[in-house]
Design a protein around this nucleic acid. Structure first.
Lengths: 145, 145
DNA sequence: AATGCTAAGTTAGCATGCTAAGTTATGGGA
DNA sequence: TCCCATAACTTAGCATGCTAACTTAGCATT
């Protein structure tokens, strides 16, 4: 059996994540997971833990702990939702905003450089990835319904 | 900022891994990570821990612990390499072989179904993924040299 | 008001990534 | 022979995924 798609995808992402993690840790003293969480809150306007979990592709308990850590670090503000319900309203602190803003493009550019170097057409690959994610999303939502 | 490629790739794989893990755990009582490790040893002929780490995209300590666990479970045989050196020779036990053989295609087929459902051309996406992985591999090898 | 449903969040405990640092085996000079 | 370099592996401890089970808050029905 030659290496197949699921294995290659898994390994590709594992390595990209690790490379990203190394850069962020050495240059900016933050992990890749934390950076992704802050990015979603800051740039995509995600504002509850439940929504953040969906956006990151992880479970609620993971986000619950992560939010607590980021709040302790002074990067994230977590408040009971004034509109009521058992919700937390998430937003970046000034420090969090500054961090996300300064790293916003750095990553995508590094990945774009790798893609260009490999000869893979960026737009097409990005579109395929997005389409797969949307489909998986739909399938998962339908199966729990 | 709209969702970008690195985030989408990360989340897509996180969800695929979780979906795979759930299926394997409920139907076959094994985790996805362990299944991948066994697959590489069984189907791709990987035979040292160092090579397995490279194949999986993880570090040596991760494999060291995983190999010990799989050996304890009776799925993997770990022996000092008779050719000498501080190496372990890895091979599947009969039980391990049986497990991998029975699951070999199940996964790739499920993913292929998802890809088909999304309308993304499988062959092209698989080729792009493989090319990116190969390029990343090359870049990483050159930078440590 | 009391009951029970649903959604969101938390807690506990385990699995498996990682880095840093140490160990073991081999081989090549001084 | 002794020392050192290198590669493979292990150990220790932390970070962050997960599931299962529990708690909290609002709402709807009676």
């Amino acid at each position: 059996m030659e290496r197949n798609l699921s294995l290659n995808l898994h390994v590709l992402v594992a390595r990209l994540d690790r490379a990203g993690d190394r850069i962020l840790r050495t240059e900016h003293n933050i992990s890749y997971s934390r950076f992704l969480a802050l990015t979603l809150v800051g740039e995509l306007g995600v504002s509850t833990q439940r929504a953040l979990a969906d956006g990151l592709g992880v479970t609620e308990p993971s986000v619950s702990r992560m939010a607590a850590v980021l709040a302790t670090e002074g990067l994230l503000d977590v408040q009971p939702d004034p509109a009521g319900g058992n919700r937390r309203q998430l937003s970046l602190t000034d420090e969090g905003k500054q961090l996300v803003a300064s790293l916003r493009q750095e990553f995508e550019e590094k990945l774009a450089a790798l893609v260009a170097h490999s000869g893979v057409p960026y737009a097409e690959f990005a579109e395929h990835t997005e389409r797969l994610l949307a489909t998986l999303d739909r399938v998962e939502r339908e199966s729990t319904k």
